[in-house]
């Protein structure tokens, strides 16, 4: 346990908390800017098992913010490079790379195996699929989004907090992306750190509020907005999982 001694010193963790964390399993969907650091922090922190998924390959424009990759990885599959990086960080952690795209057909199989799902995706359709699968199976997940000089994080605990569809009933038609509006490389790291703090709270059994956190990384400002659970939310109230395979 010497490896985790500085974490165990925290009264929020202690020996019991660390042991608890080491029994937990997480799935990170997308290991780019946000998901890459989420994965790294969870592995260094001593999560029991980490499933990682990505179907993209490393490109030159990824390098300025995607901390799992270096110039020598350009052109490689992200999942392969990420696995290679992460497995050398902490031999306590079992890392399971998923060599297929997570979609509405296979997501439930993976969600059922883990205690939490972490969002590292760059599109809302996948997030609605994650939301439906997690709400259906009662698994917590953490939404993370970044753009330009800001980002958002929302912890979602089915049955307790608002879900993604309480916040936003339908997916956006046109999305602003980092390839259009750009991204400051400190933003994914800041958002990933907030997301992992929330993941630790959830996994160790602490309360989290039904809120969305908005981080302005240029003016350095973190705001918390309370989000109400909707009684007529299609997903968490009416249990209509429209984004999963029928």
């Amino acid at each position: 346990m010497e490896k985790y001694s500085r974490q165990i010193l925290l009264d929020k963790f202690g020996n019991e908390g660390q042991k608890k964390l080491m029994e937990k399993k997480a799935l990170v969907i997308g290991v780019g800017g946000t998901g890459g650091l989420v994965s790294q922090l969870l592995v260094r922190g001593g999560i029991g098992e980490l499933f990682i998924s990505d179907f993209d390959s490393v490109s030159l424009s990824n390098i300025h913010r995607q901390l799992l990759f270096s110039e020598k990885d350009i052109g490689r599959e992200k999942i392969e490079a990420a696995y290679e990086y992460l497995k050398n960080l902490n031999s306590d952690v079992k890392i399971i790379p998923i060599n297929e795209r997570i979609d509405n057909k296979n997501i439930e199989d993976y969600v059922k195996k883990v205690d939490i799902v972490m969002d590292g995706t760059d599109n809302f359709l996948t997030r609605y699929i994650i939301n439906d699968a997690c709400v259906k199976h009662g698994k917590p997940w953490v939404y993370s989004g970044v753009l330009a000089t800001y980002g958002m994080v929302m912890p979602i605990i089915p049955g307790k907090t608002a879900c993604l569809r309480c916040l936003m009933k339908n997916p956006p038609k046109n999305e602003f992306s980092t390839s259009v509006l750009g991204i400051m490389n400190s933003i994914p790291s800041a958002i990933a750190s907030i997301a992992v703090s929330l993941a630790y709270k959830i996994l160790l059994g602490y309360e989290v509020e039904s809120s969305i956190y908005y981080f302005d990384g240029w003016n350095i400002n973190l705001e918390k907005l309370k989000i109400e659970k909707q009684n007529d939310c299609p997903a968490c109230s009416l249990k209509k999982f429209e984004f999963l395979e029928k």
């Binding site: 809302f124 309480c166 916040l167 936003m168 009933k169 339908n170 997916p171 956006p172 038609k173 046109n174 999305e175 907005l225 309370k226 989000i227 109400e228 909707q230 007529d232 939310c233």
Partner: peptide, 16 residues
């Protein structure tokens, strides 16, 4: 409203 635009009144999306 554009799909995905969020307008909250005291934490409730006005769509609801």
């Amino acid at each position: 409203f554009k799909k995905g635009v969020i307008i909250l009144k005291n934490g409730k999306n006005v769509i609801y």
